[in-house]
Design a protein around this nucleic acid. Structure first.
Lengths: 349, 349
DNA sequence: CTGAAAGCGCTTACAG
DNA sequence: CTGAAAGCGCTTACAG
């Protein structure tokens, strides 16, 4: 008689032994029936699957994880949910990972929980990999993961010298393209609204942007920078700081990401009655769908999210747990300009 | 000598036996050292914790879940990430659940994965509970969860007769308050932009809204409804459908949620040159932070997210696995009006 | 307070 | 192809 464990009043746990008993086979057989490609007669498998269906049996992943050392879970550490870009990223990871029969353990960061805390909390779950969309990872934590054979890959950033590599868009190149576009439209004075100063993404975009401008002979003093904390509100604040600066309104403003560019545009128009692009040109970076809405029609550079997500998953080596964990990998994926209405003039075809 | 398993080249698995060996105690002792409130001498615990630290040992949750039948994981099924409301919801659940030492397995729905599929995928993980923010759950799936002692609670909706209860805002009352506000501002003709027709949320808000208007003597024919599919784009489309209807622009438009109201406002202004609230009043529902941005300044009713999230977690009975799973629970939490600029006139204090 | 041992529900060599 | 059995890394009565 099958062993039964009461869970709550009236509820009972069904195991592979119960299924085996009903199907008249050994417990090993039911295990095999559920594992594709295992050595089992088609007929036996049918019998087992039938019995399982009758009992509403579902194999216990916790138990199988314990033996196989694979949980089919990947952890995603989400930094900044204020930027819709990351919502789109989460959705894309969800789609891709679920299609591969993997599942996501999410960690959302906040004042009470930093990246390192999140890592310490995910370690006990024996996840198959971790994806990080936040900055500030300590070398020690990367070590904790690697010691356990858990690959960690950074999404949209890299952290020099931590041994964690990342997948990212070619940010310097994107910055350069924006500079190019502004220049072609006749801009001569500039402002940048920068994001998280600790992340590499903002820095790289800003550097590419500046370099191109300086190459074109723009004096550094004609390129100002304001902090926008990677949020809509931050973008608006940056504009206020800029206007408070007293100087002339620049010809062009580069929001290091779309959401800041959107905040900036609204402040420019609503607070200061300025027209975009007639009075000031604006550009962003990311190409979030929100930036394409009628009030913004933001010219920007698109991050190839789908390709970035797939590259990230590939680096996790989910199907080959024994693969060496790569170390110093870094291959930026090129984004591309999306021309809309915040930079005037003819769009290159 | 402690047993060692190679994971990847060079990486090794550390278990409680290794820690026990180093600390010179039994394996049971190390288990106890990590469980708060267990019967162990302070001194022994120290020894164990020291050894664990030296070995970078972290207890294996997979193994402990297998014995305790608690994974400390709750599943969240995310329906519509196009509505920022759910991003805020996810963030709030993250904060609250992580503070209680619980973690989140997220499932994002898409064409390839419906709610029922998500449930089938979460069952093997023996989650401690499931939170559902999407509609369309079958009775059978609720049964699958309940049979296993897994509570499921619906967030922001209910599904009549599934045995799954939900936490929600008092939607009919919110709809009524919006109607009231419009009426007080002098509106006499109305349009509603409705959301997911399968969900109860949209229906309830619309019903409350209509009922109040009808009570006030507004003829039903002066209350039109357009589908907005709960998205920004849908809100804009609804306005276009409304304008194409030929009839006079209504005095007031109720966006069943903020994101649709935002889409509607932009279409009204940009496509048709209408002023809000001078030409048309608008109101939303949810009070997402995006609706408070300068271009919108949306008057709306706030969903008490924090309270709703906490109520949801309470219903999960995470700390009392043997609690009966409640069945026909339903207690709407009252939202409240947030007065901004899309309905003219004096705001009640 | 402590340790030996059974057990959680699977997977997977091993022998047949 | 199939079954008996050991083992994954913990927890928890049980006895001391």
């Amino acid at each position: 008689m099958p062993k039964k464990n009461k869970i709550r009043e009236g509820s009972i746990r069904t195991t592979s032994f119960d299924v085996a008993a009903l199907a008249g086979v050994s417990q090993s057989a039911v295990s095999r029936a559920f594992k594709p490609g295992s050595s089992i007669a088609a007929e036996t498998r049918e019998k087992v699957l039938d019995a399982a269906r009758k009992l509403n049996y579902v194999p216990n992943s916790i138990a199988s994880s314990l033996t196989t050392h694979r949980s089919n879970i990947v952890a995603i550490i989400l930094g900044d949910l204020n930027n819709p870009f990351y919502t789109h990223v989460l959705e894309t990871f969800g789609r891709e990972l679920q299609a591969r029969n993997r599942h996501i353990l999410v960690f959302t960061l906040n004042e009470d929980m930093g990246t390192d805390d999140a890592i310490m909390r995910l370690l006990p779950y024996q996840v198959d990999g971790v994806i990080l969309t936040s900055a500030q990872l300590s070398t020690r934590m990367v070590g904790m993961c690697h010691d356990r054979g858990i690959p960690v890959v950074l999404f949209n950033r890299y952290i020099p010298n931590t041994g964690a590599f990342g997948v990212r868009c070619d940010n310097p190149e994107g910055g350069r393209e924006i500079a190019e576009a502004f220049l072609a439209a006749g801009a001569r004075t500039f402002a940048m609204i920068t994001g998280d100063p600790k992340g590499t993404t903002s820095k790289d975009r800003a550097t590419g942007f500046m370099d191109r401008l300086v190459d074109a002979g723009i004096p550094r003093s004609d390129i100002k920078a304001y902090e926008g904390s990677s949020s809509y509100e931050g973008g608006a604040e940056a504009v206020k700081a800029m206007m408070a600066d007293g100087a002339k309104v620049p010809d062009a403003i580069f929001g290091i990401n779309d959401i800041m560019a959107m905040g900036a545009m609204d402040a420019l128009r609503i607070e200061y009655g300025l027209k975009v692009p007639d009075d000031v040109m604006v550009a962003g970076f990311d190409d979030i769908p929100e930036g394409a809405r009628p009030p913004y029609q933001l010219t920007t550079v698109r991050q190839p999210i789908n390709r970035m997500v797939r590259a990230t998953i590939d680096l996790l080596n989910l199907d080959d747990p024994h693969a060496e964990i790569d170390l110093a990998h870094d291959c930026p994926i090129k984004g591309h300009m999306v021309w809309r209405n915040t930079i005037p003039g003819p769009k290159p075809e």
